[in-house]
Design a binder for these strands. Structure first.
Lengths: 190, 190
DNA sequence: CGGTCCGGAGTGAACGCTCAGTCCGTTATA
DNA sequence: TATAACGGACTGAGCGTTCACTCCGGACCG
């Protein structure tokens, strides 16, 4: 049954992601992952070499979702401002609709080996965003700041507030999201 | 020797903060803290009931530094914009001048019991900032957004970019800091 | 003043426990 | 029945915490 195999693999990843999101990388033992996934501990090691590989696989999947959301919402021929508002509205919606995913990513990047992973991948994976900001700079509608600063100005508030929203410190509805993304645009527009 | 007593306590806290900043809460054993502080493992427990109390003490100290920086740079009688630029420039300078402190705080708030601590303290400790943003809203120079959103727009990019700076992904010098804080102001100003 | 005693800071081997990962008996499949 | 998938008791490493002990500077005798 290849179907079952995939099912178990998915179940393990889902269980691990949810537990790590709430308890942290070091706070979730494999025994707990197995219990939540409804399988035995040993089964985890039939699908993943070790815990690191499991965590890496989850990261890759979640990261893929984020990149996909960007690509789906990017229409190069449209004005930069419209693209910006659409993309980052979609992103924060994605963040708060998938609480486990975003919390997992935070745990991942705050762990020692998350930094290493980022250093290796970043250049490659953020290329589309890089190109998008350059387009805006060329058209003189976005401030002439280094890419990383523009990224920080855009992503920083989103991540900060997505976490606050998920912790119940603030309520992000359609109205506040629109205001937030609009304010973000004010920060980077010329 | 009362002097020595304080010295050891400080040495333990400093060693623990630096190690936790780089290895995470669960990644730093007490044995390593003791070694770095140049003391025996047992000595830690002469000054702190357990590891949690040690971590709590470090958090309180670092948090105090941040609040202090805000208070030192807040001049209520001056224009809101000047205050904003001065305060948040000082804050990001503090962040990147104290790499261990900011990394420790991130580790702390990403741990399960950091959230609980925040929930309990936040209302109290962010009062001065709350008042400051309200002053700006009253004078109609700051957008009429919920306090938490304004906080996210201001602190989000700072934390995001401070981390990137400390990880070597971006270089924050006087010029880029000024541009960053300026862009932040554009985000929240009316 | 020399010698003894003593309180408490400091220590690290040892303990109980939890973890990631293994291994082999059991179960399901074909 | 043969083969592959699975489960969970088990293992050794490593953790936070403890506690019996050492050490030393000052108090107190004779």
């Amino acid at each position: 049954m290849e179907k079952q195999q995939t099912d178990k693999r998915t179940a393990i990843m889902q269980a691990a992601m949810e537990l790590i999101a709430e308890q942290g990388l070091h706070g979730t033992p494999t025994s707990q992952i197995a219990q939540k996934a409804g399988i035995g501990v040993g089964t985890i090691y039939r699908y993943f070499k070790d815990k690191d590989e499991l965590i890496g696989a989850i990261h890759e999947q979640v990261h893929g979702q984020f990149v996909e959301t960007f690509i789906e919402n990017y229409a190069p021929q449209q004005p930069v401002r419209e693209n910006y508002l659409r993309i980052f509205t979609a992103l924060i919606r994605l963040f708060i609709a998938n609480p486990f995913e975003i919390k997992f990513i935070e745990q991942f990047y705050n762990s020692p080996y998350g930094v290493a992973k980022k250093r290796a991948q970043e250049v490659e994976c953020e290329k589309p965003l890089f190109a998008f900001f350059n387009q805006g700079k060329d058209q003189q509608v976005i401030k002439d700041l280094p890419f990383e600063i523009l990224l920080g100005l855009s992503l920083g508030p989103l991540i900060f507030l997505a976490r606050d929203h998920l912790n119940g410190f603030v309520d992000l509805n359609d109205q506040t999201i629109a205001a937030l993304v609009g304010a973000n645009w004010d920060a980077i527009k010329r």
